[in-house]
């Protein structure tokens, strides 16, 4: 437990605690990759096993999924800008870009919830077949991650507004930035391997 603090370099990397937390979070993301890979594999195995429920090709709509993709990708970009502002030492910039990020994230969630309800009305539910169980679990786990990320980021916004930029608050924001980009990457895989393939097959 060393309490020595570096005097230069990004704030979040100045304490040993900060460095270790960031490394720990990278490892956590590795575990998350395994988690999502397992869900993707499950989805792939159960692909096409719709029993007598509606097949995905009849339900997936390109429009709405494209909007969702656009929202989430943009939010990843604005999240990058937020961290950039943080590195420049601007609390205001950080807060503004982060809030935009969260709004985009909320928009994404809104569409996803609408989509899920829509499918449910069409008779495709978690219970209707193996395929739909896998679909809702994979997309739902991603959606749950986005929800948690939004809640978490709000806590951090309050903290940075109260305390300003310190090695600790910057470290927390840096970490949530990693998390947010990670969710974006996962979504790209969902977009391609679930929706695009689901629409053409």
């Amino acid at each position: 437990m060393s309490s020595h603090e570096l005097k230069t370099g990004p704030l979040e990397y100045r304490t040993q605690e900060g460095q270790m937390t960031i490394m720990g979070f990278w490892i956590f993301l590795a575990a998350e990759i395994v988690l999502f890979s397992t869900l993707f594999a499950t989805y792939a195995v159960l692909f096409g096993r719709t029993a007598d429920s509606t097949p995905p090709g009849e339900l997936f709509e390109p429009g709405i999924v494209l909007i969702m993709t656009f929202l989430l990708l943009t939010s990843s970009f604005t999240c990058g800008l937020a961290i950039h502002e943080m590195r420049r030492g601007s609390v205001k910039g950080l807060l503004i870009w982060m809030m935009i990020t969260l709004l985009l994230g909320l928009g994404f969630l809104g569409f996803e919830i609408y989509e899920f309800i829509h499918y449910t009305h069409e008779g495709a539910t978690m219970q209707s077949s193996a395929f739909w169980s896998a679909f809702f679990t994979l997309a739902g786990t991603h959606g749950l991650h986005v929800t948690l990320g939004i809640g978490w980021a709000i806590l951090l916004l309050i903290q940075v507004a109260k305390r300003g930029l310190t090695p600790r608050t910057s470290r927390k924001f840096f970490v949530i930035g990693l998390y947010w980009h990670f969710l974006d990457v996962v979504w790209i895989f969902i977009f391609t391997s679930v929706y695009l393939i689901g629409m053409v097959v």
Binding site: T42, L46, R49, S53, Q127, S128, S133, T137
Partner: peptide
């Protein structure tokens, strides 16, 4: 997944709904 199966009626490992017990 098994919890979803058992508690929420999902069909991952079931014999109905084209689930796959071997998975």
């Amino acid at each position: 997944l098994m919890t979803l199966d058992r508690v929420f009626g999902a069909q991952f490992f079931t014999l109905t709904g084209e689930g796959m017990p071997m998975m």
